[in-house]
Each structure stands twice: as C-alpha cells, then as structure tokens.
Amino acid sequence: MATADDFKLIRDIHSTGGRRQVFGSREQKPFEDLVDLGWLKRSSVDSRATHYQITERGTSAAL
C-alpha cells in the first residue's frame, strides 16, 4: 500500500524528468518500494549506482 512519502517521492521524480540515479543500498529502499508498487522500474544497475525510470503507472500516481 502506498504511503504519503511514496506519493511525495514519485511527484519529485516526475517533476525532475522521470529518472533518478541512486548510490548506496540504504538510499535505494524508498525507490525499491516504488518498484514494488509498479511506479518505477530499474533501468540499469552498475557497481556504484542504480538507475530508476518512472513508469506510466508512476506518472498517473504523480498527477
């Protein structure tokens, strides 16, 4: 179930172009929650960072 923080984060991601790069596993937790909701997808993972991209469902949630 989505929380107020989830909606705040997806709106922030949407307003800044729909993509986010995250460093460190602790910082990934809120983004992984949005992946579980179907609002974000992991577009790539490298040794230092994970890249996320907003989905259509995420765009709808952000509006």
Rank of each mutant, 00 (worst) to 15 (best):
M1Y: 13
A2W: 06
A2S: 05
A2H: 05
T3D: 05
T3C: 07
T3E: 04
T3F: 05
T3M: 05
A4N: 09
A4Q: 11
A4D: 12
A4E: 13
A4G: 08
A4K: 10
A4Y: 10
A4T: 10
D5E: 13
D5M: 09
D5H: 08
D5Q: 10
D5N: 10
D6E: 07
D6W: 05
F7E: 04
F7C: 08
F7S: 03
F7N: 03
F7M: 07
K8Q: 10
L9R: 05
L9K: 03
L9Q: 03
I10E: 01
I10K: 00
I10F: 02
I10P: 00
R11N: 05
R11E: 06
D12H: 09
D12Y: 10
D12R: 08
D12A: 11
D12P: 00
I13D: 00
I13Y: 00
I13W: 00
I13F: 03
H14G: 03
H14L: 12
H14E: 06
S15E: 12
S15I: 11
S15P: 01
T16N: 11
T16K: 11
T16Y: 05
G17D: 06
G18F: 02
G18N: 03
G18C: 04
G18E: 02
G18W: 02
R19L: 11
R20I: 14
R20W: 08
R20E: 04
Q21I: 15
Q21S: 15
Q21P: 07
Q21H: 11
Q21K: 13
V22R: 03
V22C: 05
V22Y: 03
V22I: 09
F23K: 12
F23G: 10
F23Y: 11
F23N: 12
F23H: 13
G24W: 06
G24L: 09
S25N: 11
S25K: 13
S25D: 14
R26Q: 15
R26W: 14
R26T: 15
E27F: 09
E27M: 09
E27S: 11
E27H: 10
Q28A: 09
Q28C: 12
Q28W: 05
Q28P: 04
Q28K: 11
Q28R: 11
Q28S: 09
Q28Y: 06
Q28N: 08
Q28G: 06
K29M: 07
K29S: 07
K29Q: 11
P30A: 09
F31H: 03
E32A: 08
E32S: 07
E32H: 05
E32P: 01
E32L: 08
E32F: 04
E32N: 08
D33A: 15
D33I: 15
D33G: 09
L34Y: 01
L34I: 02
L34P: 00
L34K: 00
L34A: 02
L34M: 03
V35M: 06
V35R: 03
V35E: 03
D36F: 11
D36L: 14
D36A: 14
L37N: 02
L37K: 05
G38I: 02
G38V: 02
G38E: 04
G38T: 03
W39V: 00
W39R: 00
W39C: 02
L40W: 00
L40C: 03
K41S: 12
K41D: 11
K41C: 14
K41W: 11
K41I: 15
K41E: 14
R42Y: 06
R42L: 09
R42M: 08
R42S: 06
R42F: 05
R42A: 08
R42W: 04
S43P: 04
S43W: 10
S43V: 15
S43D: 13
S43M: 14
S43E: 15
S44N: 10
S44F: 15
S44W: 14
S44I: 13
S44E: 11
S44M: 13
V45R: 10
V45Q: 12
V45G: 09
V45E: 08
V45N: 08
V45Y: 09
D46R: 07
D46M: 06
D46L: 06
D46Y: 03
S47H: 10
S47P: 10
S47W: 08
S47F: 09
S47Y: 08
R48P: 07
R48A: 13
A49E: 12
A49Q: 09
A49L: 10
T50C: 07
T50Y: 08
T50G: 05
T50S: 08
H51S: 12
H51G: 07
H51P: 02
H51N: 12
H51Y: 13
Y52C: 01
Y52Q: 01
Y52M: 01
Q53G: 04
Q53A: 09
I54G: 01
I54H: 01
I54L: 05
T55N: 03
T55V: 02
T55W: 00
T55C: 02
T55S: 04
T55Y: 01
E56V: 09
E56I: 08
E56A: 12
R57A: 15
R57E: 15
R57N: 11
G58H: 01
G58R: 00
G58K: 00
G58W: 00
G58A: 01
T59L: 12
T59Y: 07
T59N: 07
S60V: 13
S60M: 14
S60W: 14
S60D: 12
A61K: 04
A61M: 08
A62L: 04
A62Y: 03
A62S: 04
A62D: 02
A62K: 00
L63Y: 05
L63Q: 08
L63K: 08
L63H: 11
L63P: 01
